[in-house]
Design a protein around this nucleic acid. Structure first.
Length: 493
DNA sequence: TTGCCTACTTAGTAGAAGTTCC
DNA sequence: GGAACTTCTACTAAGTAGGCAA
């Protein structure tokens, strides 16, 4: 930050020499690297003490970890993609900017000496503990609990239950929107085509955002004419739609899809007499869509289709790829491939310069190891699993996951019960080799729900599935008692 | 109907932390 | 024992969705 005097002196940053700063930070980083074991230990202990004092709270009588108890430090706003506010200064937050939310009978946290809080609330209808408004976009930021907290698991369970409810009625809903393609009313036609895209392609929904305030990204409802091209025929397929747009986080979505003839015809109509920058679905927005969805099924919103199709894909892939007799490494490879199919569906990407180098190395090692094996084929069952070693499976996974991020779907889209049901048979068949379920699941899958099979030991996000009283309902089989086909939770009720 | 606001949920990235290899 | 590799986690941006008021 510059003072007014500095601002009048420094008019062109290109003429500044930042070498000293650069050297300073380089030295700092070097210093960190060269720290002795004792110093590292000391810092770790200090951090743990801070975590112990500020990183926990009591909620409904449970001790819960707080996710982000440290306020965001000042710095340059990064933003993703071509963000108009990229590089703006994110100001320091002072206690005077912070609202505290806690029970009226609790001990109100002390502000730092010489300061006071903006406000202290006692709102027990929300989950946040403190909030402030950031200066870049004027958004409210929250101090919230860590993802492992009880309520989060319960809400997750609800989310997947709605997805399962959708499964039971999805045929009807699909038939309904197919019928609506023929509607005389333009809004209904547009709504039905958008639903088809959301369902078939797992596009995100997209709410309108203020122009010039954020990067120019779109979702299904805000697609513009310039984002799609129609081909009567392409590569031997008929009625092909070519999508090309920037979605959430400015990740490019490029896809060519052969669509239903009626949809193709509708799209032509929607694009008629429009400029490239015009809305494709000009009569549609997310609240129209969600209101309609809720009338078809209580609790249904557009994003549920993504959850449903993701979990359904996992289950289908697991059924297709796994065999109860597979050895553990092969099982793991199959699980990762199924997970990967979901990540592809949901378009979760990984861009990292390091990944490229890692992949190259992995591929090299893979070709050395693979000679007698056929593990390289994506999404196919391996024919001779016994030949697979854990190492080879691991490297194959790495190789196949180029630019595909698996974590997001694991965390937000995959019903953990499917994973539990899938590896359940293993806990019986592996026997003494892998001493415990715990060992298997930690090695196999870093899935929040199945770090350990013991519901009483679970301290992870989806734990509520198994240890909350309401989850004892008929929809939530005890993982230890499950005798369902591995991976099958989408069965008829 | 529209715009705005609040309160979550979903998302990718950097780098710390942990593990394996030589 | 340290370098190289790999995984995990903190961080925070960017979505979704509901509610409310003009």
């Amino acid at each position: 930050m510059m003072t007014p005097e500095e601002k009048s002196t420094i008019t062109d940053l290109k003429k500044c020499n930042f070498k000293e700063m650069y050297e300073y930070f380089k030295a700092k980083s070097e210093e960190r690297k060269n720290m002795s074991k004792e110093e590292k230990k000391k810092i770790k202990a200090q951090n743990e003490a801070i975590q112990k004092e500020y990183g926990v709270c009591m909620m409904d009588g449970h001790k819960e970890k707080i996710g982000n108890f440290k306020i965001e430090p000042p710095g340059l706003f990064r933003g993703r993609g071509d963000h108009p506010k990229q590089g703006m200064l994110k100001m320091r937050i002072n206690p005077e900017d912070v609202i505290i939310n806690c029970s009226s009978d609790s001990k109100i946290p002390e502000p730092p000496a010489g300061h006071r809080w903006k406000k202290v609330l006692h709102n027990n209808k929300v989950t946040w503990l403190a909030s402030w408004t950031e200066n870049i976009q004027g958004h409210t930021k929250y101090v919230i609990l860590n993802a492992t907290f009880k309520l989060k698991g319960e809400k997750d369970l609800q989310k997947y239950e709605i997805a399962r409810k959708l499964h039971r009625t999805v045929d009807k809903i699909r038939a309904h929107y197919r019928e609506d393609w023929k509607s005389k009313e333009m809004m209904i036609q547009q709504r039905a085509v958008a639903m088809y895209f959301i369902d078939k392609l797992a596009l995100s929904v997209d709410n309108e955002k203020e122009e010039g305030e954020t990067a120019d990204t779109v979702g299904c409802c805000s697609l513009r004419v310039e984002h799609i091209k129609l081909h009567d025929e392409l590569d031997g397929k008929e009625s092909v739609v070519e999508f090309d747009f920037l979605g959430k986080d400015s990740i490019r979505y490029y896809n060519t899809v052969s669509v239903d003839k009626r949809v193709y015809k509708n799209l032509k109509l929607f694009m008629d007499n429009k400029q490239p920058g015009d809305d494709l679905f000009d009569r549609l927005n997310t609240s129209i869509m969600n209101e309609h969805l809720n009338s078809l099924m209580k609790g249904l919103t557009a994003k549920v289709f993504r959850t449903y199709n993701a979990s359904k894909t996992l289950q289908e892939q697991l059924n297709l790829l796994t065999n109860p007799d597979d050895p553990v490494p092969v099982k793991l490879l199959s699980y990762n491939r199924a997970n990967r199919a979901v990540a592809i569906l949901c378009h979760h990407q990984l861009f990292n310069a390091q990944v490229e180098t890692l992949q190259m190395k992995a591929r090299k090692r893979l070709s050395e190891l693979k000679v007698k094996n056929n593990l390289g084929k994506p999404l196919e069952r391996t024919t001779d699993p016994r030949e697979a070693t854990g190492k080879l499976s691991h490297i194959t996974t790495l190789d196949e996951n180029k630019e595909i991020a698996l974590g997001t779907s694991k965390l937000n889209y995959l019903d953990p019960r499917i994973s539990v049901a899938c590896i359940q048979p293993y806990s019986r068949s592996i026997g003494d080799e892998c001493a415990s379920w715990k060992h298997i699941s930690i090695t196999l899958i870093q899935h929040p729900a199945i770090i350990t099979p013991d519901p009483l030991e679970m301290s992870v996000p989806h734990a509520a599935y198994f240890n909350h009283p309401s989850s004892a309902s008929s929809h939530t089989p005890d993982p230890l008692e499950m005798s369902v086909l591995h991976g099958s939770i989408f069965q008829s009720p």
